[in-house]
Each structure stands twice: as structure tokens, then as C-alpha cells.
């Protein structure tokens, strides 16, 4: 499920070396490769497209400035995600409650997803919800979580990362990742009980 294997980290190292050697086009390749994943991480944390765009620019700019210090002890994948998580959490701390959701429209493929069909056409036909209604409720439930819980839910449930990868990026133990997930799922269950699978 994770994209790390698909992204070929060995090739990343070559691109990193070329960037460190002064080839900016190599860094462009890394931006093309990682911007969709990093976008997803930041977007699901902020629930705001414009904030995500600005943060994503800052994340890649910071990575570009600091790439000379990148020694390859972790993969570029882990490194760029760590930068993104730290910058996003700092941003959220500053933003605090001044949040105005700016959500992207869900891809039309969602309508054919069995999970979506199961969630929206519940056993009780009077409780049928639209795609946008579901999106709003999911977003509201996510925003109720603390930053620490939201980041593990985003990485594990939405982006499909391993526990070990999450632990490495957040610099916490796998046990902590699991306990945070467990607690976050319990909170989400309270908010989204109507969509719970039968």
C-alpha cells in the first residue's frame, strides 16, 4: 500500500547527490515525485487547499536549502515527510482556531468505491447521505482530533503508511503509533458512528 517501494529510494539517492552537486533539475524530479504525497499529508492535516499550497512551497524550499546537510541516514522519503510534518504542526499551532476549511472536490471515482457505497447507502435508507455531506462530516471529525492523533490517522488510514514508517518520520516508537491510532479511532467512531460498517 505504501508508495515508498514504488518510488525507488535508490534512485532518490542519485537525485539527491545530483542536487547536492548543483543540478537543480534533479531536485525538480524529486518535487514531481513527492509533491502529491506530501500534499496529501499537509492537506488532510490542515483541511485547507490554499494553506496546503503555501506550506508545500515552504516545505520544498526548506528541503532545497537544507539538502547539502542531508547525509542519507534516512531515505529522502522519510526526510521530506519529517520536514512536512514539523512545518505543518508548527503552522497549525500558530493558526490555532482560525480555520476556514477549503476542501477539494472528491474524485468522481469515489462513487464506485465499495466503502463509499457502504457508508452512504446505509441499512437505514432515511439516513442516506450525499458525497459532500460525508466529506464535511469526515473533515469535521478529523479536525476534532489533536495534531498528534490527526497526523497518525492521516499517515496510516488515508496515506496507507506502515507503522514503522510513521514511527521513523515522527521519531516515536511503533507502540506509540499504535496507541495513538487506537485512541484516535475511538474518537472518530464517536463522531462517525452513523457510517460505521454493519
Amino acid at each position: 500500500m505504501s508508495d515508498e517501494q514504488e518510488i525507488a529510494p535508490n534512485n532518490d539517492q542519485e537525485l539527491v547527490s545530483r542536487t547536492q552537486g548543483g543540478d537543480p533539475s534533479a531536485f525538480d524530479e524529486l518535487v514531481i515525485r513527492y509533491s502529491p504525497r506530501v500534499y496529501g499529508l499537509v492537506y488532510h492535516m490542515t483541511s485547507n487547499h490554499e494553506d496546503t499550497n503555501d506550506l508545500l512551497q515552504d516545505v520544498f524550499a526548506k528541503a532545497y536549502r537544507s539538502i547539502c546537510n542531508f547525509q542519507g541516514k534516512s531515505s529522502f522519503y522519510t526526510w521530506i515527510h519529517s520536514i512536512a510534518v514539523n512545518m505543518t504542526i508548527n503552522f497549525l499551532k500558530k493558526r490555532n482556531r482560525r480555520q476556514h476549511p477549503s476542501l477539494n472536490d472528491p474524485d468522481s471515482r469515489i462513487e464506485s468505491d465499495p466503502d463509499f457505497i457502504a457508508a452512504t447507502s446505509n441499512t437505514d435508507p432515511t439516513k442516506e447521505v450525499s458525497m459532500h455531506e460525508l466529506q464535511k462530516k469526515l473533515n469535521a471529525a478529523m479536525q476534532k482530533l489533536s495534531h498528534d492523533h490527526r497526523v497518525v490517522v492521516t499517515m496510516f488510514d488515508i496515506q496507507g503508511m506502515h507503522h514503522a514508517e510513521i514511527a521513523k518520520i515522527l521519531k516515536i516508537s511503533e507502540g506509540t503509533v499504535r496507541s495513538r491510532l487506537f485512541y484516535a479511532h475511538r474518537l472518530l467512531q464517536n463522531s462517525l458512528h452513523e457510517f460505521k460498517r454493519a
Binding site: 500534499y39 474524485d107 469526515l138 467512531q189
Partner: peptide
Amino acid sequence: KEPMHHVIRLKRYEQPHEGYFEEFLREFQ
């Protein structure tokens, strides 16, 4: 193990408009 996982993972369909990442790279450069 986790029933809420199926619902939450539907958020992955929320994607920016087509061509956003090309624009993003141009803006970055």
C-alpha cells in the same frame, strides 16, 4: 480490526484539480 478505517480512507479521493502539480512545480521554480 478497525471499522472506522474504511470510512476515513475515503478522504484519499479529495484531490486538487488536474494540472495542479505541474503548476506547483512552475511556481516553485
